[in-house]
Simulated assay, not measured.
Amino acid sequence: MIEPREFRNTVGHFATGITVITTINGKEKIGLTANAFSSLSLDPPLILVCIDKRSGSLKALKRDHPFAVNLLKKSQETECWRYAKSSGDKFEGAAYKLSEDGVPILEDNLATIECVVADIIEGGDHYIVTGLVKNASYDDQGEPLIFFRGKIEQLELAKTVEL
């Protein structure tokens, strides 16, 4: 079987966007950086995000619990690192508003997807959290913040071609 480091280096060649997952646990605001995110289904509208089993943020994610996926734009690298740390008040000094469910929504995102937890599935050293999408918004002029080969990158968009 492939060694974990070699596997990580290999899958690191797949460029991904960077998200910040936000939720609440009582009055506590919770946020964590994740790049293992994907759309899952159009009907019903579902997404998935993979979260390390060691994450303290998992305690808040239960079936039918609200959360948001904040897709970061290239100007939000500071937000990426803010929510990647494991301690302290990650929201201190952050620009956010609260959703109707009280979930923090980061301001000036590339896109925001508001969900409720549909299911939590065990997957190796992570949990796969699926979310039923309740609301979504996006900035169609923004450019994404990218994770590639273990580094944060900024993608410059070329002219788009209609397919």
Rank of each mutant, 00 (worst) to 15 (best):
D43C: 10
Q141S: 13
I24L: 02
Y138F: 15
L32V: 08
A94L: 06
W81T: 13
K53W: 02
S75L: 03
I121G: 00
I128M: 08
L61E: 01
I30Y: 02
D101C: 09
A15W: 06
L48A: 10
R54N: 13
F7C: 11
L71I: 15
N135M: 07
F148P: 00
V69E: 04
N35Y: 11
V116I: 15
P66Q: 09
S99V: 12
G26E: 05
S41Q: 07
H65R: 15
T19P: 03
L157H: 08
G124H: 10
Y83E: 04
D119M: 04
R149G: 08
P144D: 07
P144C: 08
K29N: 12
I47N: 00
E156G: 11
G102F: 03
R54E: 14
C80I: 04
E92G: 02
T33C: 03
Q141M: 10
T16L: 07
D108E: 15
I128K: 00
N9K: 15
P104L: 05
F67D: 05
T22A: 05
K159W: 00
T16E: 04
T160R: 15
P4Y: 12
D64V: 03
A68S: 13
G88T: 09
G142N: 02
E114G: 08
I18M: 04
L32S: 00
K97T: 14
